[in-house]
Design a protein around this nucleic acid. Sequence first.
DNA 1: GACTATTTGTGCGTATGTATC
DNA 2: GGATACATACGCACAAATAGT
Lengths: 259, 259
Amino acid sequence: MPAKRESGRRPAPSGPRASTGAGPRYRQILEALRARIERGIYPVGGHVPTESALCREFGVSRYTVRAALANLVEHGMVERRPGLGTIVLAPQSQRAYQQSIRSLADLFQFALDTHVAIRASTLVELDAATAAVLGAEPGERWLQVDSVRRTASGGPPICCTSSFLPDRLAWIGPELQDCVGPFYAHIEARTGEPIVRATQEIRAEPMPAHLRPLLDDRDGAIALCLIRHYFSAAGSVICSFNWHPAATFSYRMEIERKR
Amino acid sequence: MPAKRESGRRPAPSGPRASTGAGPRYRQILEALRARIERGIYPVGGHVPTESALCREFGVSRYTVRAALANLVEHGMVERRPGLGTIVLAPQSQRAYQQSIRSLADLFQFALDTHVAIRASTLVELDAATAAVLGAEPGERWLQVDSVRRTASGGPPICCTSSFLPDRLAWIGPELQDCVGPFYAHIEARTGEPIVRATQEIRAEPMPAHLRPLLDDRDGAIALCLIRHYFSAAGSVICSFNWHPAATFSYRMEIERKR
DNA sequence: GACTATTTGTGCGTATGTATC
DNA sequence: GGATACATACGCACAAATAGT
């Protein structure tokens, strides 16, 4: 006997009804809502019915409805706000797969016990090409900081970096001289504004001629150029161009299916 | 007076106690547990106290304790199993930041309306170097499939790919000839085993000489080599080496702080 | 600006199912 | 089988945010 749903003895003993063959109730409701969102029955920008309406429709408690809705939030499909309701953000899960990293330092993917030596620090007006990469306007004033990173043991250079700070943060520039960790961490600490978002672009390029001597780059002239851009809620915080000799560096990432 | 927890009027009216000044109860408990895990009071591999024990200790309901524990699960710090308990997996959040992608296709990051032409399909015995990258043993038999990808409009070639399938999946090889989408999707469909995990490594390399004619590569001999490795629960499913001319390709990713 | 209705957020107590040892 | 511990589910109550009057 595939089990009945209603026990029908006492008024409302509650507890999980014997499986109806389709898993937990909250998951059934989740799938129902997901299907409606995908089919546009609840269009993007529109509202999902309120919790109490869903309780009535599916004949379950608020607990169960909330469990389903929480899952939709986790998948980035809806947003919920008190007094406003549940709004559809996207017709498909936004995080079917995900790469998780413990900290922004993981973006670097090389040992943090490295030393930085600043070679130059100049207030520049952006040319068109650089402005395009920074997402800024040509002619804007940014602070450019050029540096070389080596292993702590004073070994060979690992990479060359050009970092750009927006004008409003240029006052931090001098402090970077004796900064131990990565620049973005120092800026995060000094401004008190946490970094909320970061982007990274990876290119293969010839090592720029003026950098080759700094890296003892004799053999190959190929470089992996990583362009990292960090944002706080207030906007752009720092953008860095990191040139690694191709022979000594590769970038590795891992993605997992979510649940 | 730091606020009392017991209202002490009616037997148990329940409902959120007036804020003690530190946010919701479940979040306070979350932070307390997180701190204990970080300090090794609950060591990795060890157990967090049971729900009922935590209810007693913090003087809250099971609902509240569960809300806190659910958050720890979300951050990858603990694992929970019925009859077993709550086990500590990691002393820090494993997902402070995350890159979310809708589908594995996003790993490709170029239009899917491309055509693939298979140039060769051979059962090979792995040499040491290839075996190392595949995470296999030298001498193992894998099916190697070489192909070229162009835009649907019959335009110029975009990239060259060498794909490796383990012996147990070699029977799928012939089918890839008329496969429209990416190979991994076809394999996922035919085997019925969903892909659970994928890794990607990015290198800058000279374009291999034998590939240059295929790509009309005259100007630069630099390539971005993307090595993608897809896994189902049963193990390795397919691994591909994708060579893109550096001039026409860069890889971009975006990371967001979690909550 | 103050008030009210609506909707989600937080929290309690309880009951039963199911997996593990 | 029995004990333990988490999973699912119900009903209720109060708080906080929001929109509209």
